[in-house]
């Protein structure tokens, strides 16, 4: 009886289905290529497909952290891919044209992302523009801004300190993974150890009622878009450091869509409301594990996108209360 209750609790947990999906995808590799699970320590750093999944997932994971909050207030941030390009352009140019310290370069990179986020937030909360439109503006204009900063070129650089952000390793793990975990912890602390998380969820569920209760609705929205911009800036620096160059056209291209997808896979409603940063990151891992699996499995690359979308639909259906109810109804009718 106790085991049954425990099972019920697991089944009703928000974490159950996303974690199950991730486990199943990883399990599939046991049959496809057992080498997937090999992790070895070389020069004080871990190598292997699993580490790869984590490492490659970091830019989208960073975006998904910010995106979780934006979606929680019922918004969406399409501009994060472009913010990656802007941050990359800012950092690359500072490295090549000035001899600023690493700390200064990183600070200015973050400020560029924050500024972009605040522009989005301002358009949404103070001018009342629909989030999808407001952030679409910067999604398009942002790449233009990055091109202007780069003067139409792809800027490459050599800077060991900055490159460390993308290719270095800390505590045996790739630096991007460590950075992402730190950002996750910081944002988690910011929303859960202050009242910001409560305000975000309240605004997302019912902005009008929150306003009536005295919640600074506009300020909350502004802050959330700002955080999203900051997360995108961190992702931008990792990507730029990884390739040691800034490509205004292709850096972070379409990553905003993966980030939105990850948040949705994590079980968040696009209409706003409850959010979980951890679930969004699990969503990223599902997408990334899937991509890596398809790559490793040797399926013709033409099928990749198709298989990916089918699995994504399956994961979403597994979490849908309506779908589960219908299936269980069918089940019962069959049994009867």
């Amino acid at each position: 009886m106790k085991a049954h209750a425990l099972l019920q609790r697991c089944l009703h947990s928000r974490y159950f289905w996303p974690l199950l999906a991730l486990a199943l995808i990883l399990l599939a590799n046991l049959f496809i290529s057992p080498a997937f699970f090999q992790v070895e320590l070389r020069d004080g750093r871990l190598y292997g497909s699993l580490v790869d999944v984590l490492n490659r997932g970091t830019p989208v994971a960073l975006l998904a952290i910010g995106m979780s909050l934006v979606i929680a207030i019922g918004g969406v941030d399409l501009s994060v891919g472009a913010v990656i390009a802007i941050t990359g352009a800012v950092c690359a140019n500072l490295i090549t044209d000035t001899d600023m310290s690493l700390l200064m370069i990183m600070t200015l990179g973050l400020l560029a992302g924050l500024a972009a986020g605040l522009v989005n937030g301002g358009l949404v909360s103070y001018l009342g523009i629909q989030p999808i439109v407001a952030t679409l503006v910067l999604m398009v204009a942002g790449r233009g801004i990055a091109q202007l900063i780069n003067d139409g070129q792809i800027i490459t650089f050599t800077h060991d300190g900055f490159a460390f952000l993308g290719v270095g390793s800390l505590l045996g793990l790739p630096a991007p993974v460590v950075i992402t975990v730190i950002v996750l912890l910081l944002v988690h602390g910011l929303v859960r150890f202050t009242a910001l998380g409560l305000f975000i969820e309240a605004v997302g569920c019912n902005a009008q009622a929150s306003h009536y209760a005295g919640v600074p609705v506009k300020g909350v929205k502004l802050a959330v878009y700002g955080i999203s911009g900051l997360c995108a800036a961190v992702a931008g620096m990792i990507i730029t450091a990884d390739i040691q160059g800034a490509d205004a056209n292709n850096a972070g291209l379409w990553l905003e869509l993966d980030a939105i997808l990850a948040v949705v896979i994590g079980g968040a409603a696009l209409a706003g409301g409850r959010f979980s940063l951890v679930l969004s990151v699990i969503g990223v891992l599902i997408i990334q594990a899937l991509s890596t699996t398809i790559l490793v499995s040797g399926i013709a690359p033409q099928y990749n996108l198709l298989i990916k979308s089918l699995v994504v639909i399956a994961v979403l259906l597994l979490q849908s209360a309506v779908f589960k109810r219908q299936v269980s109804l069918l089940w019962r009718r069959e049994a009867a």
Binding site: E201, Y212, R274
Partner: peptide
């Protein structure tokens, strides 16, 4: 509409 935040 203006009072409760239903999901919370």
């Amino acid at each position: 509409h203006d009072g409760i935040v239903g999901e919370l």
